[in-house]
C-alpha cells in the first residue's frame, strides 16, 4: 500500500492576461487500499489533479507526499521510476502504442522495468487473460474494439504490480454497457489485487460503489464520504 497525500496542491495556468486556477488548494489523501472516485464536470480540474498526483506534472504551489516523501525533492529520474514501478495509468483515450500488439503493449512496461523476457511473456498473457482478452494477444490496437483497447490498457497498468492505479475518465469514450464492464473490472482489481484505484469521472453512477468519493468543482476538491 502506498500512501499519497497532498497539501494545498494548486495548479494555475496563464492564458493570455488571465490566470486559470485548474486545481485550487487541494488536500487529498489515500492511506489504505480504497476505490476512490473523483467526480466532476468537464473542465473542473480532474485531469490536472490526477496528472499531479501521478507525478506527470508539477504543481504551481503546494506539495505531494508519497510515502511521506516530498515529491518536489525528487529528480526527474526518480519520479519516472515511481511512475514505472508503483503507479499504473489508464487513460480516457487508451493510449496504446499502435505498432505493438496487445501482448507487446503489456510487455513493454515490464521490459522497461527490466523483467526477463520469459517473465514478461508469461505475465502479459496471464494479465490479458484476466481482463478477458486471452484470444486477442497478437491483435494490434486498431484491430480491437474500444472496450478491448481499454482492457489492454488496464492490463498494461497492472504489469508492474503497482500499488495505485490512476484512471482518468477511463469510460469517457465507451458506451454505457462497456463502461460498466470496465468499472467492474477496475473494482475487481481493487478488491482482488489489493490495489488502490483512483478514478476520475463525470459519471454519477460511480457514487454507489466508491469507498471514498470526492467531488471537484472549479478546481476545489470536497470529500463526500
Amino acid at each position: 500500500m502506498m500512501k499519497i497525500k497532498t497539501v494545498d496542491l494548486t495548479k494555475t495556468y496563464r492564458v493570455g492576461p488571465s490566470r486559470i486556477i485548474a486545481v485550487d488548494k487541494v488536500n487529498f489523501e489515500v492511506n489504505k487500499v480504497t476505490f476512490t472516485a473523483i467526480v466532476g464536470l468537464s473542465g473542473s480540474g480532474k485531469s490536472t489533479l490526477l496528472n499531479l498526483i501521478g507525478l506527470n506534472d508539477c504543481p504551481t504551489s503546494g506539495k505531494i507526499f508519497i510515502e511521506n516523501t516530498d515529491t518536489s525533492l525528487l529528480s526527474d529520474r526518480e519520479r519516472r521510476k515511481i511512475r514505472l514501478f508503483h503507479i499504473g495509468f489508464v487513460f480516457q483515450t487508451f493510449n496504446l502504442l499502435p505498432t505493438l500488439s496487445a501482448l507487446e503493449n503489456v510487455e513493454l512496461s515490464m521490459s522497461l522495468a527490466g523483467k526477463s523476457q520469459k517473465e514478461q511473456r508469461e505475465k502479459a498473457v496471464r494479465l490479458l487473460e484476466n481482463v478477458g482478452l486471452g484470444d486477442r494477444l497478437s491483435h494490434r490496437p486498431r484491430e480491437l474494439s474500444i472496450g478491448e483497447m481499454q482492457r489492454v490498457a488496464i492490463a498494461r497498468a497492472l504489469a508492474n504490480d503497482p500499488e495505485v492505479i490512476i484512471a482518468d475518465e477511463p469510460t469517457g469514450e465507451l458506451d454505457s454497457k462497456t463502461a460498466k464492464e470496465i468499472i467492474g473490472l477496475l473494482f475487481d482489481i481493487n478488491r482482488n489485487h489489493k490495489t488502490t484505484v483512483i478514478i476520475a469521472t463525470h459519471d454519477e453512477k460511480i457514487v454507489e460503489i466508491a469507498d471514498m468519493l470526492y467531488t471537484i468543482r472549479d478546481g476545489k476538491l470536497k470529500l463526500e464520504h
Partner: peptide, 16 residues
C-alpha cells in the same frame, strides 16, 4: 506525440 507522452507517463527512461 501521444505515443511519446504515453511512454513518458508510464515511466520509460528518457534514454529509451
Amino acid at each position: 506525440r501521444r505515443d511519446f507522452a504515453t511512454l513518458d507517463a508510464i515511466g520509460a527512461p528518457l534514454s529509451y
